[in-house]
Amino acid sequence: MKAFSGRAVALALVMASSGLAGTAAAEDKVVNLYTGRHYQTDEKLYAEFTRQTGIKINRIEGKEDEIIERIRNEGANSPADVLITVDMGRIWKAEQAGLLAPVKSATLEQRIPSNLRDPEGKWFAFSTRARVLIYAKDRIKPEQVDRYEDLASAALKGKVCVRSSGNIYNLSLLASIIATQGEQKAEEWAKGVVANMARPPQGGDTDQIKAVAAGQCDVAVSNTYYFARILNSTKEDDKAIAAKLAISFPNQADRGTHVNISGGGLVKTAPNKQNGIKFLEYLVSDEAQRYFANGNNEYPVAEVKTDNKVLEGWGSFKTDKVNVGELGRNQAKAQAIFNKVGWK
């Protein structure tokens, strides 16, 4: 080995590290964002806010549970202004932990339907995504999959693909069934789905969709934006997958399709409160709402016309308007039921 000079290395390291970070300093025109959103297409969403307001966005992206843990530990000195999650269970958890401050804003109240925001203004939904069924056109008739309950019916034995129970989207779905049907019915449903699985739960939503296209199963559970991404894709592989599949928005004749949110709120200890509120208000503006749809195939919460042909083509549908607090409270029960019935 060449000579290994400790001092030279130390010097180089100090010089190199001084160029890093240091961005969270006390600037006036900044907003500090702790976010569970992990969509690359959001870059444009953030850039547009800075262009409009001159306020710079500092971001930490991560897993929601860890981010909430971090804000909690950072305490009064936390630099976090705004917390954003991609699931209602988590934003409820943050609210329960007392991390969020009430925000009074005519803009937010006017643009967001009342069932998609906290009555006290501690959190607001900015986009929604439905948990839908994707099925093989050649093997399944639409009426076989028009309710979540169908997933547990004997007719679909060995035909269902769904991801694992630790996944938050599945937890929220079961929490909604607990809320509307009661614990016992929910457990029977989960048991029935496990009995119908084509394979043990594995992979993400996209993997389930691909498994239906490849013929391993006939129906999959997925969030809308994963399927819309495939339908909007220009890749040949994706086009071949899309050609074989169709979508079902379940329970249109009764309680409606389960819808989850991506939402956020102002952190109680926010050092830049005004900028934080400005950012929340920006997220419901026409431009921002269009970014959610055009960039990441999510449904806007405000009434805007988007350029997303797939979403517009699906049209509007009836949603399950179950109370978000109830969903949050049911998360632990949902996990317990999944564990009990052996939903991996």
Partner: peptide
């Protein structure tokens, strides 16, 4: 820290987004 991504973080974020 804020805005501090590494190669591992970038890999993870994209994989998480499927």
């Amino acid at each position: 820290p804020f805005n501090f991504d590494t190669l591992a973080v970038q890999t993870y974020n994209l994989a998480r987004d499927e």
